[in-house]
Amino acid sequence: MPILEVKNLKIYYFTPSGIVKAVDGVDLYIERGETRCIVGESGSGKSTLGMGIAGLIDHPGRIVDGEVIFDGKIVASKNGIYTQKLLGRRITLIFQDPRSALNPVMTVGEQISETLQHNLGLDRREAYKIAYDLLRKVEIPDPERVLHSYPHELSGGMAQRVVIAIALSTEPDLIIADEPTSALDVTVQAEILRLFRSLVKSGKRSVLFITHDLSVALEICDTTSIMYAGKIVEEGLTREIFEKPLHPYTQALLSSIPRIGLKTEKLMSISGEPPLMIEPPKGCRFHPRCPFKLEICDKQEPILINLSETRRVACHLYK
Protein backbone atom coordinates (compact mmCIF):
# COMPACT_ATOMS: atom_id res chain seq x y z
CA MET A 1 0.00 0.00 0.00
CA PRO A 2 1.45 3.40 -0.90
CA ILE A 3 2.16 5.72 2.03
CA LEU A 4 0.51 8.59 0.20
CA GLU A 5 -2.31 8.60 -2.29
CA VAL A 6 -3.67 11.74 -3.82
CA LYS A 7 -6.85 11.25 -5.78
CA ASN A 8 -8.21 13.80 -8.20
CA LEU A 9 -7.15 16.65 -5.92
CA LYS A 10 -8.43 20.09 -6.82
CA ILE A 11 -7.35 23.16 -4.91
CA TYR A 12 -8.78 26.49 -6.00
CA TYR A 13 -8.09 29.98 -4.74
CA PHE A 14 -11.14 32.19 -4.65
CA THR A 15 -9.67 35.63 -5.28
CA PRO A 16 -11.44 38.91 -6.08
CA SER A 17 -10.18 38.69 -9.66
CA GLY A 18 -11.45 35.15 -10.20
CA ILE A 19 -10.99 31.49 -9.31
CA VAL A 20 -7.38 30.41 -9.59
CA LYS A 21 -7.31 26.70 -10.30
CA ALA A 22 -3.89 26.11 -8.80
CA VAL A 23 -4.19 22.34 -8.58
CA ASP A 24 -6.76 20.96 -10.95
CA GLY A 25 -7.21 17.23 -10.71
CA VAL A 26 -3.96 15.62 -9.58
CA ASP A 27 -3.43 11.91 -8.90
CA LEU A 28 -0.28 10.90 -7.13
CA TYR A 29 0.96 7.72 -5.45
CA ILE A 30 4.08 7.56 -3.36
CA GLU A 31 5.33 4.21 -2.11
CA ARG A 32 7.16 3.73 1.15
CA GLY A 33 10.82 4.56 0.65
CA GLU A 34 10.18 6.38 -2.61
CA THR A 35 11.65 9.79 -3.32
CA ARG A 36 9.34 11.60 -5.69
CA CYS A 37 10.02 14.91 -7.34
CA ILE A 38 7.39 17.33 -8.49
CA VAL A 39 8.94 19.51 -11.15
CA GLY A 40 7.23 22.59 -12.49
CA GLU A 41 7.68 26.27 -13.17
CA SER A 42 6.31 29.04 -11.00
CA GLY A 43 2.53 28.99 -11.19
CA SER A 44 2.38 25.32 -12.08
CA GLY A 45 0.71 24.55 -8.76
CA LYS A 46 3.54 22.42 -7.41
CA SER A 47 3.83 24.23 -4.09
CA THR A 48 0.06 24.37 -3.65
CA LEU A 49 0.02 20.61 -4.16
CA GLY A 50 2.64 20.17 -1.46
CA MET A 51 0.77 22.43 0.93
CA GLY A 52 -2.49 20.67 0.09
CA ILE A 53 -1.01 17.30 0.99
CA ALA A 54 0.18 18.75 4.29
CA GLY A 55 -3.29 20.20 4.88
CA LEU A 56 -1.96 23.73 4.99
CA ILE A 57 -4.14 25.55 2.49
CA ASP A 58 -5.12 29.00 3.71
CA HIS A 59 -7.97 31.26 2.83
CA PRO A 60 -8.82 32.13 0.05
CA GLY A 61 -7.69 28.65 -1.05
CA ARG A 62 -9.79 25.54 -0.57
CA ILE A 63 -9.80 21.89 -1.49
CA VAL A 64 -12.82 21.70 -3.77
CA ASP A 65 -12.59 18.06 -4.80
CA GLY A 66 -10.60 14.89 -4.33
CA GLU A 67 -8.78 13.53 -1.33
CA VAL A 68 -5.39 12.99 0.24
CA ILE A 69 -4.93 9.55 1.77
CA PHE A 70 -2.01 9.04 4.14
CA ASP A 71 -1.23 5.56 5.36
CA GLY A 72 -4.70 4.35 4.38
CA LYS A 73 -6.65 7.15 6.03
CA ILE A 74 -8.22 10.18 4.40
CA VAL A 75 -6.41 13.17 5.89
CA ALA A 76 -7.60 15.97 3.64
CA SER A 77 -10.59 16.45 1.42
CA LYS A 78 -13.21 19.10 0.87
CA ASN A 79 -14.96 17.77 3.95
CA GLY A 80 -12.13 18.52 6.31
CA ILE A 81 -8.48 18.40 7.11
CA TYR A 82 -7.04 16.03 9.68
CA THR A 83 -3.33 16.47 9.32
CA GLN A 84 -2.65 18.47 12.49
CA LYS A 85 -1.68 15.42 14.52
CA LEU A 86 0.54 14.08 11.77
CA LEU A 87 2.44 17.26 11.02
CA GLY A 88 5.79 17.49 12.73
CA ARG A 89 5.68 13.80 13.54
CA ARG A 90 4.77 11.48 10.72
CA ILE A 91 4.83 14.21 8.08
CA THR A 92 7.54 16.86 8.27
CA LEU A 93 8.19 19.88 6.10
CA ILE A 94 11.29 21.58 4.74
CA PHE A 95 10.99 24.93 3.01
CA GLN A 96 13.13 27.07 0.74
CA ASP A 97 14.02 29.64 3.37
CA PRO A 98 15.39 27.81 6.38
CA ARG A 99 15.46 30.92 8.53
CA SER A 100 11.72 31.40 8.30
CA ALA A 101 11.25 27.86 9.55
CA LEU A 102 13.35 28.45 12.66
CA ASN A 103 12.33 30.49 15.67
CA PRO A 104 14.65 33.51 15.75
CA VAL A 105 14.66 33.87 19.54
CA MET A 106 15.43 30.25 20.41
CA THR A 107 18.78 28.51 20.11
CA VAL A 108 19.05 25.62 17.72
CA GLY A 109 19.42 23.22 20.64
CA GLU A 110 16.25 24.49 22.29
CA GLN A 111 14.29 24.13 19.08
CA ILE A 112 15.37 20.62 18.28
CA SER A 113 15.00 19.39 21.82
CA GLU A 114 11.60 21.00 22.12
CA THR A 115 10.45 19.14 19.04
CA LEU A 116 11.81 15.92 20.48
CA GLN A 117 10.32 16.49 23.93
CA HIS A 118 6.98 17.37 22.45
CA ASN A 119 6.78 14.61 19.87
CA LEU A 120 8.67 11.75 21.40
CA GLY A 121 8.11 12.50 25.09
CA LEU A 122 11.78 12.63 25.93
CA ASP A 123 13.21 14.58 28.84
CA ARG A 124 15.46 17.55 28.30
CA ARG A 125 18.80 15.86 28.69
CA GLU A 126 17.97 12.96 26.43
CA ALA A 127 16.57 15.38 23.88
CA TYR A 128 19.77 17.44 23.88
CA LYS A 129 21.83 14.34 23.41
CA ILE A 130 19.77 13.24 20.45
CA ALA A 131 19.86 16.78 19.05
CA TYR A 132 23.63 16.62 19.19
CA ASP A 133 23.65 13.31 17.35
CA LEU A 134 21.24 14.67 14.76
CA LEU A 135 23.46 17.65 14.04
CA ARG A 136 26.39 15.30 13.55
CA LYS A 137 24.29 13.24 11.25
CA VAL A 138 23.62 16.26 9.04
CA GLU A 139 27.38 16.79 9.01
CA ILE A 140 27.55 19.99 10.97
CA PRO A 141 31.24 20.32 11.83
CA ASP A 142 30.89 21.67 15.39
CA PRO A 143 27.52 20.53 16.74
CA GLU A 144 28.22 21.83 20.23
CA ARG A 145 28.58 25.42 19.03
CA VAL A 146 25.61 25.20 16.66
CA LEU A 147 23.39 23.83 19.45
CA HIS A 148 23.96 27.07 21.34
CA SER A 149 23.64 29.35 18.31
CA TYR A 150 20.66 31.37 17.24
CA PRO A 151 19.41 30.95 13.66
CA HIS A 152 20.74 34.35 12.53
CA GLU A 153 24.24 33.25 13.46
CA LEU A 154 24.13 30.43 10.95
CA SER A 155 24.76 30.61 7.23
CA GLY A 156 21.95 29.60 4.87
CA GLY A 157 23.43 26.16 4.31
CA MET A 158 23.95 25.51 8.03
CA ALA A 159 20.41 26.67 8.82
CA GLN A 160 19.03 24.33 6.16
CA ARG A 161 21.00 21.47 7.72
CA VAL A 162 19.41 22.28 11.04
CA VAL A 163 15.95 22.26 9.46
CA ILE A 164 16.71 18.91 7.87
CA ALA A 165 17.87 17.63 11.26
CA ILE A 166 14.57 18.73 12.81
CA ALA A 167 12.60 17.22 9.95
CA LEU A 168 14.38 13.90 10.46
CA SER A 169 14.20 13.96 14.24
CA THR A 170 10.82 12.31 14.58
CA GLU A 171 11.54 9.55 12.08
CA PRO A 172 8.69 10.68 9.83
CA ASP A 173 7.07 8.53 7.15
CA LEU A 174 6.87 11.39 4.70
CA ILE A 175 9.03 14.46 4.24
CA ILE A 176 7.68 17.26 2.06
CA ALA A 177 10.53 19.44 0.85
CA ASP A 178 9.64 22.57 -1.12
CA GLU A 179 12.65 23.92 -3.06
CA PRO A 180 14.97 23.25 -0.10
CA THR A 181 18.13 24.13 -2.01
CA SER A 182 16.98 26.91 -4.35
CA ALA A 183 18.21 29.73 -2.15
CA LEU A 184 21.65 28.20 -1.64
CA ASP A 185 24.90 28.63 -3.51
CA VAL A 186 25.84 25.94 -6.02
CA THR A 187 28.56 24.32 -3.98
CA VAL A 188 26.38 24.39 -0.88
CA GLN A 189 23.44 23.05 -2.85
CA ALA A 190 25.57 20.15 -4.06
CA GLU A 191 26.50 19.37 -0.46
CA ILE A 192 22.94 19.52 0.81
CA LEU A 193 21.68 17.37 -2.03
CA ARG A 194 24.35 14.79 -1.32
CA LEU A 195 23.42 14.85 2.36
CA PHE A 196 19.74 14.59 1.55
CA ARG A 197 20.38 11.62 -0.66
CA SER A 198 22.39 9.74 1.90
CA LEU A 199 20.16 10.53 4.89
CA VAL A 200 16.75 10.36 3.44
CA LYS A 201 17.17 7.40 1.25
CA SER A 202 18.27 5.21 4.09
CA GLY A 203 15.23 3.60 5.59
CA LYS A 204 11.66 3.47 4.47
CA ARG A 205 11.09 7.17 4.53
CA SER A 206 9.24 8.69 1.61
CA VAL A 207 9.98 12.10 0.24
CA LEU A 208 7.99 14.52 -1.84
CA PHE A 209 10.57 16.88 -3.28
CA ILE A 210 9.25 19.98 -5.01
CA THR A 211 11.57 21.84 -7.36
CA HIS A 212 11.63 23.97 -10.49
CA ASP A 213 14.91 22.43 -11.53
CA LEU A 214 14.82 19.21 -13.47
CA SER A 215 18.55 18.73 -12.88
CA VAL A 216 18.01 18.68 -9.14
CA ALA A 217 15.42 15.96 -9.64
CA LEU A 218 17.96 13.78 -11.38
CA GLU A 219 20.29 14.25 -8.43
CA ILE A 220 18.00 12.86 -5.81
CA CYS A 221 14.68 11.50 -6.97
CA ASP A 222 13.76 8.00 -8.02
CA THR A 223 10.63 9.16 -9.72
CA THR A 224 9.49 12.46 -11.11
CA SER A 225 6.15 14.01 -11.93
CA ILE A 226 6.16 16.99 -14.26
CA MET A 227 3.47 19.56 -13.51
CA TYR A 228 2.16 22.14 -15.92
CA ALA A 229 -0.71 24.53 -15.26
CA GLY A 230 -2.17 22.63 -12.32
CA LYS A 231 -1.91 19.15 -13.80
CA ILE A 232 0.61 16.36 -13.98
CA VAL A 233 1.58 15.95 -17.62
CA GLU A 234 4.17 13.21 -17.33
CA GLU A 235 5.65 10.89 -14.78
CA GLY A 236 8.17 8.13 -14.61
CA LEU A 237 11.53 7.12 -13.27
CA THR A 238 13.69 10.25 -13.30
CA ARG A 239 16.32 8.42 -15.33
CA GLU A 240 13.73 7.45 -17.94
CA ILE A 241 12.52 11.00 -18.23
CA PHE A 242 16.05 12.27 -18.84
CA GLU A 243 16.72 9.54 -21.37
CA LYS A 244 13.51 9.90 -23.26
CA PRO A 245 11.17 12.71 -22.36
CA LEU A 246 7.74 12.12 -23.89
CA HIS A 247 5.56 15.14 -23.29
CA PRO A 248 6.53 18.12 -25.48
CA TYR A 249 6.68 20.28 -22.35
CA THR A 250 9.12 17.91 -20.67
CA GLN A 251 11.16 17.77 -23.86
CA ALA A 252 11.35 21.54 -23.94
CA LEU A 253 12.24 21.76 -20.24
CA LEU A 254 15.03 19.29 -20.71
CA SER A 255 16.48 20.90 -23.78
CA SER A 256 16.46 24.31 -22.18
CA ILE A 257 19.06 23.10 -19.68
CA PRO A 258 22.30 24.36 -21.25
CA ARG A 259 24.78 21.50 -21.61
CA ILE A 260 28.52 21.75 -21.39
CA GLY A 261 30.76 20.38 -24.10
CA LEU A 262 27.97 20.65 -26.59
CA LYS A 263 28.17 24.08 -28.12
CA THR A 264 24.92 24.78 -29.88
CA GLU A 265 24.02 28.00 -31.60
CA LYS A 266 20.72 28.32 -29.80
CA LEU A 267 19.11 26.91 -26.73
CA MET A 268 15.77 25.35 -27.39
CA SER A 269 13.15 27.43 -25.71
CA ILE A 270 9.44 27.24 -25.18
CA SER A 271 7.70 30.11 -26.87
CA GLY A 272 5.17 32.21 -25.03
CA GLU A 273 4.34 32.40 -21.37
CA PRO A 274 2.76 29.98 -18.91
CA PRO A 275 -1.04 30.40 -18.87
CA LEU A 276 -2.97 32.32 -16.25
CA MET A 277 -4.67 29.84 -14.03
CA ILE A 278 -7.84 31.85 -13.84
CA GLU A 279 -8.65 30.90 -17.37
CA PRO A 280 -6.46 27.99 -18.46
CA PRO A 281 -6.53 27.12 -22.17
CA LYS A 282 -9.20 24.69 -23.30
CA GLY A 283 -8.18 21.17 -24.22
CA CYS A 284 -4.56 20.42 -23.46
CA ARG A 285 -3.23 23.29 -21.38
CA PHE A 286 0.07 23.26 -23.18
CA HIS A 287 -1.36 23.51 -26.68
CA PRO A 288 -0.78 27.26 -27.21
CA ARG A 289 2.96 26.72 -26.70
CA CYS A 290 3.28 23.24 -28.18
CA PRO A 291 5.32 22.74 -31.37
CA PHE A 292 3.49 19.45 -32.15
CA LYS A 293 -0.06 20.66 -31.71
CA LEU A 294 -2.69 18.43 -33.33
CA GLU A 295 -6.24 19.17 -34.38
CA ILE A 296 -7.60 17.56 -31.23
CA CYS A 297 -5.34 19.35 -28.75
CA ASP A 298 -7.39 22.50 -28.27
CA LYS A 299 -10.62 20.55 -28.05
CA GLN A 300 -10.08 17.58 -25.82
CA GLU A 301 -8.08 17.43 -22.64
CA PRO A 302 -5.64 14.49 -22.67
CA ILE A 303 -5.65 12.18 -19.67
CA LEU A 304 -2.65 10.50 -18.06
CA ILE A 305 -2.26 7.10 -19.74
CA ASN A 306 0.00 4.29 -18.64
CA LEU A 307 2.71 3.47 -21.15
CA SER A 308 4.53 1.05 -18.89
CA GLU A 309 4.59 0.08 -15.26
CA THR A 310 6.36 3.31 -14.35
CA ARG A 311 5.64 5.65 -17.20
CA ARG A 312 2.61 7.85 -17.62
CA VAL A 313 1.97 10.74 -19.96
CA ALA A 314 -0.95 13.05 -20.72
CA CYS A 315 -0.58 13.92 -24.39
CA HIS A 316 -2.57 13.18 -27.53
CA LEU A 317 0.62 12.19 -29.36
CA TYR A 318 0.75 8.95 -27.42
CA LYS A 319 -2.21 6.74 -28.10
Binding site: G157, T187, Q189, L193, R194, V216, F242, R259, G261
Partner: peptide, 27 residues
Protein backbone atom coordinates in the same frame (compact mmCIF):
# COMPACT_ATOMS: atom_id res chain seq x y z
CA UNK B 1 32.13 24.70 -8.93
CA UNK B 2 32.08 22.49 -12.00
CA UNK B 3 31.52 19.36 -9.97
CA UNK B 4 28.62 20.99 -8.10
CA UNK B 5 26.47 21.35 -11.21
CA UNK B 6 23.34 19.31 -10.62
CA UNK B 7 22.61 16.46 -13.03
CA UNK B 8 26.26 16.63 -13.91
CA UNK B 9 26.32 13.49 -16.02
CA UNK B 10 23.56 14.80 -18.19
CA UNK B 11 25.02 18.29 -18.42
CA UNK B 12 28.42 16.98 -19.46
CA UNK B 13 27.07 14.25 -21.72
CA UNK B 14 28.41 16.09 -24.76
CA UNK B 15 31.41 13.90 -24.11
CA UNK B 16 34.06 16.47 -24.90
CA UNK B 17 34.79 17.36 -21.33
CA UNK B 18 35.66 15.20 -18.38
CA UNK B 19 36.14 16.81 -15.07
CA UNK B 20 37.41 15.43 -11.82
CA UNK B 21 34.97 15.68 -8.94
CA UNK B 22 35.85 17.83 -5.99
CA UNK B 23 33.46 18.66 -3.23
CA UNK B 24 34.55 21.64 -1.19
CA UNK B 25 33.95 21.20 2.49
CA UNK B 26 31.98 23.67 4.55
CA UNK B 27 30.73 27.02 3.40
Amino acid sequence: LLSSIPAIDYVFSGGKINIPRITPTGE
